[in-house]
Each structure stands twice: as C-alpha cells, then as structure tokens.
Simulated scan of single mutants.
Amino acid sequence: MPKQVYKIPSSLNRSFLDHELALSGGGFQMKPMPVKVILFWVASTLALFWVSTSTFVAAADWWLIALVVVIWLITTAFLGQYSKTKEMKFMSVPALLAYLPQAARRVLTRRSSNPSGFYQIVGINSIDDNGLIKYADGTFGQGYLVVGSASVLLFDDDRKRILDRVDHFWRKVEPTCEYIIMTTKEPQRVYRQIANLERRNVALTTPDPDLRELLDEQYDILTSHVGSSFKSIHQYLIIKADNLESLRRAHTVLQAEAESSSLMIKNWSMLNAAEVTDMLAVVYRGK
C-alpha cells in the first residue's frame, strides 16, 4: 500500500544543533526550537549587551541606544528564523552578499565574451557524442527523455499501483547517484509527422500540382505552427554519478524498470549530444 502522508525526511547531515527543544516554564509553552536557533539568540543577546555597554554606542544618548537595541533585535529575529528546509536565514547571508554586485547578477553569453561566468553556472566540461556529460567536479551524467503514466484521471487502484512501483524503484537506486528531473514547456515534436510527409512525397507517383501543394501546406503547418507555437510539457531525467561504473549500474536499473513495467516510466529514450544541448538550452538560454 502506498503512503497516505508524505513529508520531507530528516537530512543525513543532521547534527546535535538540529535537535529541537521545547522551552516551557511558569505555565508558558513555546514552540519547539532547534538548538542552533537558541544558541544564535543567546550569542546575539550577549553581543548586543557588549555593544551597548562597552563600545562607543554606550556614550550615545539613551534614544540612540534604544534604537540600536530595537534594530538589533529585529535583525536577530529575521536572521534567526527557521525555514521549511530546516535552515536558518542567517546561512543565506553569504549568498546574498555574493549576489548583490551587479557583475554577479549579469552574465554575458556572447561568443566574444569571457565564458568564465557562464561556465561557473553550468559546470559542464564537455558532452560526448553519445550524450555522456562530464561535469567540472569530476562526476558524469546521462540525459534521458522520459514519459510517465501519472494523470489526474487515474482510478484509485491504478494510482496505488503507480505509487507502489515508484516507491520500489527509489528503494533500488544507489546513494552514489543523483537523479535530476527537469520539466520544461517546449514546442511539440513533429519530426515523425514530417518524416511521414516525406515518405508520402516520395511515394507520390502522379505529378499532380494540387497534391504537391497540399503536402507543402501540411509541411508548413507542422513546421511553422505546430512545431513552433503549440507547446507541451516535456520531462527529462539526468542521472549524475560519481564515476562511470555507478552511472552504468544506474542506467541498468532504469532500463530494467522501463522494460519490466510501464507504471512509472511509459516511454524513455537516451539523449545524444545534440539532444542534451537542446535540453540544456531550454534552461540556460533566454527567449
């Protein structure tokens, strides 16, 4: 039976500072707070006491000292908040400071520009002809175009079978591999329809201009309208592994899952270099 309730599991990096303590006393009950949040408040309070009594702030007027105390407490309350991802906002301050300069928020991607900024964002060294992605951190990846079987119109029994199959699949994956799922909205793929038109064009033995004009009109509709204006949802899967052996085993598990059942993956195909580039272009290239 599939789970009825899903939640974010506890991180493997959880330490003693992430344990939550319930503070209470005198009939007053507070919401459980992590140890690191409590220590952050204690350290901030001690720092505030030192600043207001032992620095130049102590020589200021009382209203300036009160203003410093109020601003300090508001800042502490904001930076000491615990997010839904179990992280303090204080941990995001270095990333904020690195994002503030305009040079860090604007990356030039012209051919004549320095590619260092874009390389730091993408982190890919090369893509082989067979679609093997070599990342800058020494890991390897392989991209796939996948089609699932989930839908809002499923019956309850089918939904349970799909959830059970998905749960069993994730139990088989190795911790040395990372599964990156990308959902994009792209124009519909019409290469099969265009190939069918080409076969009909070749098989056309009667030199009828009206039939030729009809084929040209259908080709124009497929390429100029359906293949460019009509967009649909596409899903990609990138398996990123520490080494080639782990990537090969992950590919075997994915292949076995797709061949043994269509509950989780109805259809899948491995991407070559050109297709991987087109997949990444949807994410990194502007309109």
Results as ranks from 00 to 15, higher is better:
Q4K: 11
A256M: 08
P187Q: 06
I162N: 02
P115A: 01
D210H: 03
S11P: 04
I65N: 00
N13E: 09
R285T: 14
S54Y: 10
I133D: 01
A60P: 04
K231M: 10
R14Q: 13
E259N: 13
I8S: 09
E178A: 06
D167S: 15
A256N: 15
A22G: 06
N13F: 13
A47W: 07
D137R: 01
W41P: 00
T75D: 05
I181Q: 13
K31W: 04
S11N: 09
M279C: 12
F78G: 05
R161H: 06
V152I: 03
K134N: 12
V35M: 10
D158F: 03
V70E: 07
G117T: 06
V93E: 03
G25C: 07
F169R: 00
Y119E: 12
R14T: 14
R199A: 12
A98M: 12
E245D: 13
R249A: 09
A258L: 08
V226I: 15
S269Q: 13
L214I: 11
T277Y: 03
L154W: 03
I180D: 08
E198G: 05
C177A: 15
A150V: 09
E275T: 01
S149V: 01
S10E: 15
I239G: 06
I238T: 05
D137C: 01
M30V: 03
T223S: 08
N201A: 08
L211K: 04
Y6D: 08
R105M: 03
G227M: 07
K240W: 04
R249T: 12
S44L: 07
G123D: 07
P209T: 01
V122R: 09
K266T: 06
A274Q: 13
T139S: 14
